[in-house]
């Protein structure tokens, strides 16, 4: 019996969806817009996230060693720095490599190249490039290195460039922090607004059927039997809308992909779409279905009082 009733409710939901025609179409359209907004936020966050991590990646501390520093001492310092919990990576660049890099960078400048040739020996020392997990952690790492410079191993340090860059780094981490907070706040507000719009649209769609709901009650239908098809309809709205939204994102991201790739260098929005297709679809589907079902439930409840 339960199976028969469930079958009737589900069938009635589909039939109502189909026969309501324009109302169903309009409701789906509004939910598509809602889900599209939310999907766009997911993509924006991905872009913002990749931008932030890229900027963060460009920030590092370089430690320049004196030319007479022993390689083994430097490597020992590198090991101890790597063990710090804040440090993400420490890269050792030998004196020869530094020179190579320098030559590579200035290969078009004949004067510099000539000077190097004339100098005969390598004027550059080895260096360590250190990256931390958060931009705010550079200060403590710099302090640690500072404290090391008093020791035997530390005396080989020529210069730590953090103090030259301190202001820029501080400012950057502040900007990144506020960008994250602002992004989250805007997302939350947009999500709430779009869900409220979808919710009200479904309520309006059911408002049209309010008399029918009363008739069903008078004919002897239980609350559940009246409500069931409306909830099924709400679920159908959600499923169809999430599929449409995902389909719209395909050509859109395909078109925007190269642009994002050039502009933000590092993230191609289309590749992101393809790579995270399942996850994004699941989020939109769950959101659409729950908004649809919940709105229907609330809306029908109002007219079930007969």
């Amino acid at each position: 019996m339960i199976w028969i009733k469930a079958k009737r409710v589900i069938k009635a939901g589909f039939v109502n969806f189909w026969r309501n025609g324009w109302i169903s179409l309009a409701t789906v359209l509004v939910i598509v817009i809602t889900l599209f907004t939310i999907g766009s936020l997911i993509f924006s966050r991905a872009i913002l996230g990749s931008m932030i991590s890229q900027i963060q990646d460009k920030v590092d501390i370089s430690i320049y060693f004196k030319t007479d520093a022993e390689e083994s001492d430097i490597l020992a310092l590198k090991d101890s720095v790597s063990k710090l919990p804040e440090v993400k990576s420490a890269e050792y660049v030998s004196a020869e490599q530094s020179l190579e890099n320098f030559k590579e960078r200035h290969k078009d400048n004949a004067l510099i190249m000539q000077s190097i040739e004339e100098l005969g020996e390598n004027p550059l020392g080895a260096m360590l490039n250190i990256k931390t997990k958060e931009t705010s952690q550079y200060d403590s790492v710099a302090k640690y290195l500072e404290s090391q410079s008093g020791t035997a191993g530390g005396s080989m340090i020529d210069k730590i460039n953090y103090y030259q860059n301190k202001k820029v780094i501080d400012r950057l981490s502040k900007i990144l922090d506020s960008a994250k907070t602002l992004g989250t706040a805007i997302s939350v507000i947009l999500v709430i607004i779009s869900i409220i719009i979808a919710f009200n649209t479904i309520r309006l769609a059911i408002y049209i059927s309010r008399e029918e709901i009363g008739v069903m009650r008078l004919v002897g239908a239980s609350d559940r039997f009246v409500r069931g098809p409306f909830i099924v309809e709400g679920v159908i709205y959600g499923v169809i809308s999430s599929i449409i939204a995902m389909i719209i994102f395909y050509p859109l991201t395909l078109w925007l992909g190269p642009m994002t790739d050039n502009f933000f260098s590092g993230i191609n929005i289309f590749q992101y779409y393809v790579a995270n297709f399942g996850q994004i679809f699941l989020i939109l589907l769950l959101l659409g279905v729950s908004v649809g079902a919940f709105s229907s439930y609330i809306a029908v409840k109002r007219y079930l009082k007969v």
């Binding site: 029918e212 069903m216 239980s222 039997f225």
Partner: peptide, 28 residues
């Protein structure tokens, strides 16, 4: 119940309107 304004379900055919009362009552 029978009303002056009929109160049929507009989205259902005559057959379905009648069947609805039976379905609601849980008939086979």
């Amino acid at each position: 119940t029978v009303f002056e304004d009929f109160r049929l379900l507009p989205n259902k055919t005559a057959y379905e309107n009648i069947a609805f009362a039976m379905e609601a009552a849980g008939k086979m």
